[in-house]
């Protein structure tokens, strides 16, 4: 199986690569269009600020490539947010894969949310063998509201979408690569799709 982690200069890519290695697979880091197109599974990571990450995607033409991919694609954290239509962070137009606008948490809660929170309403194969209410590690200031593409929710002041799916595209707000054995299970489920 050929696994490509999209490397566009945003975020903690090494941790995702290590997590995949712990599952017994190898992953390639790449921003090459052909290499990404030919992968069996594509992981789209991202940590940092939305508008500058989007600029980096545009600089490499990946903003046009990603929405056309047909193999399973997993966006993680900011990667998931960039797959949405729009983000309030830096007034950023996203890739438009998920039909939802990303918003900032209201100051009724501490922002960023940092730590382990529960995922519920699990409605996808990527959650096989993961219990309702399992804890995932999250670090974020912006969130996707619940829509019909939501496949898991989390409560932080409000209920929001911590995972999204549309066709072959999956997005998770949490970091499966840092979420202990349950996180590893989700990554493994994705790789087995």
């Amino acid at each position: 199986m050929k696994i490509v982690i999209i490397n566009y200069g945003a975020g903690n890519i090494q941790s995702i690569r290590f997590a995949i290695e712990r599952l017994g697979y190898d992953a390639i880091l790449s921003n090459d269009v052909e290499e990404i197109k030919n992968a069996d599974k594509v992981i789209f990571p991202g940590v940092g600020e939305a508008s500058s990450a989007m600029k980096m995607l545009k600089a490499t033409g990946l903003d046009r490539l990603i929405p056309t991919l047909t193999q399973p694609v997993l966006g993680i954290c900011l990667g998931m947010q960039l797959m949405c239509k729009y983000s309030e962070e830096g007034d950023t137009t996203g890739l438009g894969i998920f039909d939802v606008d990303v918003k900032r948490f209201e100051n009724i809660v501490k922002v960023p949310q940092i730590g382990w929170n529960q995922i519920s309403g699990l409605g996808s194969k990527i959650f096989n063998n993961v219990k309702e209410g399992a804890y995932m590690y999250l670090v974020h200031s912006y969130y996707a509201p619940i829509t019909k593409e939501t496949i898991a929710t989390t409560e932080y002041g409000i209920q929001y979408a911590t995972a999204l799916q549309k066709n072959n595209f999956y997005g998770v707000q949490f970091h499966p690569e840092k979420s202990s054995t349950d996180g590893a299970m989700i990554l493994e489920n994705f790789l087995n799709l």
Partner: peptide, 11 residues
């Protein structure tokens, strides 16, 4: 840091 990241699955 690299060794820890390779072997530990929490932040």
């Amino acid at each position: 840091v690299r060794d820890v990241a390779a072997q530990v699955n929490i932040p």
